[in-house]
Design a protein around this nucleic acid. Structure first.
Lengths: 245, 245
DNA sequence: CGCGAACTTGATATTTGTCAACTAAGGTGG
DNA sequence: CCACCTTAGTTGACAAATATCAAGTTCGCG
């Protein structure tokens, strides 16, 4: 594992053992980038996007609006994540994608993705792996929202984000940047802003997390994961690592 | 559309325009079937299954257990659905699959699936479509659980099941069989059995649904869908139908 | 006809939501 | 560099939704 690898390469490295040329090909994707301000839509419901979006830095999310004005965030994107790898097949977006913080993104033409999956078998495998992990994450979000009390929802989400950032080299030590407002957390967890605030205080008081501005510190990861009943296995971060050893 | 088509063929017909030979190939999948009693596990968490499971009749579900004994159902399977089309890539199941009612299932060896996706491009496209629709359904479940009051959750789920059954020819007219207990609905919607019961009564009193045993009758589909704020588009049932017209 | 599972009911407890106000923080123009 | 101004975070009192518990009742099946 090289310290200078991009989040994308690090991420896909969990899904397949990549060769030098694979890495070189992936790095080419990030040659032309675009900066996007926070809180702006990348794709709207009913769009039929031409390009695939890859997050290089910053946070973004996938969300759906309801008739009554409520919003549910159904996915977070961190650096290394593709937002819409395959939507072409369905023809039409059934949700929207927006940045949360300022982001650097790469827009990758459809034909280039096609080149990746047909010419680079290990990258193809890694992209499949990433798609299936995305699905596993969706399932875990359902469990989190459906069965956990609010404090655990929050703790569990923080565990997930920490581990995902860690797996792409963005949560060294016990802290990481998490520029997400309490209102956005509320839309993610299916609770109100006020309640997020109180649950946050509870986590702080129990010494499970500490925050200053957007910096989250987790003094004892194991303790937080135990509190949240967080089972890492759904992120499937081990198999390729084992293969590499 | 032929009345004698299997649920599988009907379902995949929404994802691609299938040829005669495609249909013939798909029908071959269902030659050897197996009956499974209700409430028995097909695959358990941490299994590494050899075959792909296809539901031919009956209802099944995907679920995850929590440390505290609670259960969350994260997917329903109706006839025509594959339970685990691609889990091979992730190496290990992170959840379990169980029948709800008595089911007829086909177990399809991995190499045969490989044959399908490599030798039959339209079937390959349809399977991709099915996978992406599954993902869209997961997102909608998150929205349902996260943002809707309990009555709407229930109504919304009923709308989804009705439409999915209808799309494979199993919900003719205004009624369909739905052999799912209130306890299972509770595990699906993230509410308690008692509350499911009360919300069910409310839907009945408002004349939105009627039930006798496992038979659900919906006098006015449009009214129920409006009540549930149900937007069909996430099931992506139109594109191939348009192509056919 | 009886037994167990599923469904139903009522009383009460708990969690979470709502509303409304206030404080703190960050960014911008004068 | 300060004053202001907007956004994010915080608080308290109260309301509503949902959970819990415990006891029926009904239904299908052997």
């Amino acid at each position: 594992m090289h310290a200078d690898q991009s989040p994308l390469v690090r991420k896909l490295g969990h899904g397949a053992v990549l060769s030098q040329s694979d890495v070189k090909r992936l790095d080419r994707l990030t040659e032309s980038t675009r900066a996007v301000a926070g809180h702006s839509d990348l794709i709207r419901e009913s769009d039929q996007p031409e390009n695939v979006h890859l997050i290089l830095s910053g946070f973004a999310c996938r969300y759906k609006m309801l008739r009554n004005g409520r919003r549910q965030i159904v996915a977070f994107f961190v650096p290394g994540d593709f937002c819409d790898l395959h939507v072409a097949i369905l023809g039409q977006m059934d949700h929207s994608i927006a940045t949360i913080s300022t982001c650097n993104i790469a827009e990758i033409p459809r034909h280039e993705v096609l080149d990746l999956v047909t010419q680079y078998p290990r990258i193809n495998h890694a992209l499949w792996w990433a798609t299936l992990v995305d699905e596993a994450v969706l399932r875990e979000w359902i469990v989190r929202i459906g069965q956990r009390p609010a404090v655990q929802k929050l703790a569990h989400l923080i565990c997930e984000i920490r581990l995902r950032l860690n797996s792409v080299g963005l949560a060294a030590g016990d802290e990481f940047r998490f520029p997400v407002t309490q209102a956005e957390l509320a839309d993610t967890l299916g609770i109100t802003t006020v309640h997020v605030n109180r649950m946050m205080q509870q986590l702080r008081m129990e010494g499970l997390i500490a925050t200053q501005a957007t910096l989250v510190t987790i003094p004892n990861v194991e303790r937080l994961e135990d509190f949240a009943d967080f089972d890492r296995s759904y992120l499937h971060l081990v198999s390729a690592a084992l293969a590499r050893a």
